[in-house]
Design a protein around this nucleic acid. Structure first.
Length: 283
DNA sequence: AATGGGTGCAACCGCGATCTT
DNA sequence: GAAGATCGCGGTTGCACCCAT
């Protein structure tokens, strides 16, 4: 494994975020360890992956957890234990790290408190139902969904295969919200990104088609990196993301031009002269 | 205004699982 | 089948922020 001479740690800067998002939007995820080098980032692949998974990837819901989400987490934690990724899979748009943090900082204490309260309540025969029902948290917990309330996991896989090969995104379109979900709000939706999915603070937007198979990223409105097509004139602007690390290493950028073997080995781009677009068949 | 404790969250670390050669 | 590379997960840490004193 090739190691960077220096790998930055700590908080990510907006510039680093932009580089990573733009690179992934353009080329997909082909190898976390190699990617930072090509994206011009002095970060470990692990750090890049974490940043992408927990913050930058589309469709991440941030901010306060709803009551329903809290209930689901409490229920699933009780059922599954600290299997945060499994819990996150049942909470649309939430990351396992977010859920873990939320549990550790807030829910755990509350649950412990509730357990203590309920334990003491059982010893106090005088405690009334009315008193308990006045506790919003306790009453809400009565409506905890069971695993039977959740549909089978969608066959949704990361279109950016770790191996660099394109994985098909399969969404069970036959699944009917009305027919199968007792509560539309609790339906677990696949993480198919939509136009509004990229975080606001970024200076560019990224949009994804509803099929989930194709991706479109936009930079400055006109910067279309669609499915994944890039007009040839914009292509070379984007390429600067890739050239930076290569130039830093003294590599000839021409050697990794879209016509070179090296380039194709990493990016698999094809130029479509009919439409004046660069096409990445892997994405 | 200074300071110390509590809290929330982003990020790191270690390790097991999985994949590739 | 073995070894190395890579990925993904869960536990933990570090730091910024808030608030009470």
């Amino acid at each position: 494994m090739v190691r960077q001479p220096y790998q930055k740690k700590g908080t990510w800067t907006p510039d680093e975020d932009q580089k990573l998002v733009a690179y992934i939007a353009r080329y997909g995820i082909w190898n976390w360890n190699e990617m930072p080098r090509f994206a011009g980032l002095q970060r470990s692949g692990k750090s890049c992956r974490l940043r992408w998974m927990n913050y930058l990837r589309p469709n991440i819901k941030r901010g306060n957890f709803t009551r329903e989400e809290e209930e689901t987490i409490i229920h699933l934690q009780k059922k599954l234990g600290n299997r945060w990724s499994a819990i996150a899979a049942r909470l649309p748009h939430r990351t396992d790290n977010d859920i873990k943090n939320f549990w550790n900082t807030r829910l755990k204490k509350r649950v412990i408190l509730q357990n203590n309260n309920s334990a003491s309540a059982t010893t106090e025969t005088s405690s009334s139902v009315e008193e308990n029902s006045s506790d919003a948290d306790s009453s809400a917990l009565l409506n905890i969904p069971t695993t039977a309330d959740f549909p089978e996991p969608f066959a949704y896989s990361n279109p950016f295969s770790p191996s660099g090969c394109h994985q098909t995104v399969e969404v069970d379109n036959s699944y009917s919200m009305e027919e199968n979900s007792p509560d539309a709000d609790s339906l677990i939706l696949p993480n198919i990104p939509t136009m509004a999915d990229f975080p606001e603070p970024l200076t560019y937007g990224t949009a994804f088609s509803s099929s989930g198979c194709h991706q479109t990223a936009e930079i400055d409105e006109n910067y279309i990196m669609g499915e994944t097509f890039v007009s040839s004139e914009n292509y070379w602007e984007i390429l600067s993301f890739v050239e930076q690390p290569l130039m830093a290493e003294g590599l000839d950028c021409e050697a990794v031009s879209p016509n070179s073997q090296l380039w194709h080995s990493h990016h698999e781009l094809c130029y479509d002269p009919a439409d004046d677009f660069w096409v990445n068949p892997l994405i």
